[in-house]
Amino acid sequence: MLDALRYEWTRLTTLRSTYWLIGVGVLCSLAIPVIAGIAVNEEPLTSETVAAGLNGGAAFGIPFLAVFMAIIGIFTTGHEYRHGTIQPTLTALPQRSRLVAAKILVVAAVTVAVTVASMALNAVALLVFWGEVPGLFEDPLRSALLGYVLYTLIYTLVGLGLGLLFRGVPSALVVIFLVPLILETLIFGLSFLPMADWLVPVVKFLPFMSGARMMVVDLAVQDMSGPGMPDFDFFGRWASGGVFAVFAALIITGAWILFKKRDA
């Protein structure tokens, strides 16, 4: 297994795209506290604004960093087929399960390290503009930030799984961006219509939307309960994360089984 990890580490670190994708992701994320610091540094920090500053405005959609790390995840498997390197890879490392496990472990470790480093950098930006980062190690901010790390990790692994499943890059890119941004938004929107109210119980199982609940500071606001609103009966923070994790596990398991069965 150590050989496989060494291989995957060398593969990842000898690609220029790894560095610029991480660089652009970290810079985009950093831009949020810097812009906020320049624009509104006289307003006091709340838990929500600290979270937005540290996770690069993740509450507005898919976190910037997750987008770029997911592309790295897709490249990890999809590039092997796009450039035909799967042949030399499997003649250097013919144990297929070992190869997939090494890819998952290395990409997961890099994703967590980069996400934590990005948060630390953003925390420095908050300190520069506000002179403090209040409530960093207290709930609910602490849980929301841990949720951000987990969301980015799972989102990246979904990318890795899709690259392996589709044996290429373009289809995986389409799925990982269009499903959360268009398909899930469409289902969520339709569920408000009386004629499509049968979609209401489905909403809490939408994987990317569920995963995003891990990053929310105040879940009560997100639950959207009230008169005239559908009762989505959302899961709690970590159960919602579990829905996202199960979705990722299904994608990866399916891709892994097919990878072992298919011709290279």
């Binding site: 050989d3 291989y7 060398t10 690609l15 799967i86 042949q87 030399p88 890879t89």
Partner: peptide, 25 residues
């Protein structure tokens, strides 16, 4: 083994391509 004419990532240097495979062995 040598199976296909150009199974290389286009932007990884030739030396790094070999270093990558060497690392697995």
């Amino acid at each position: 083994t040598l199976l296909e004419a150009k199974p290389f990532h286009p932007t990884r240097s030739a030396r790094n391509h070999l270093r990558m495979l060497a690392a697995a062995n």
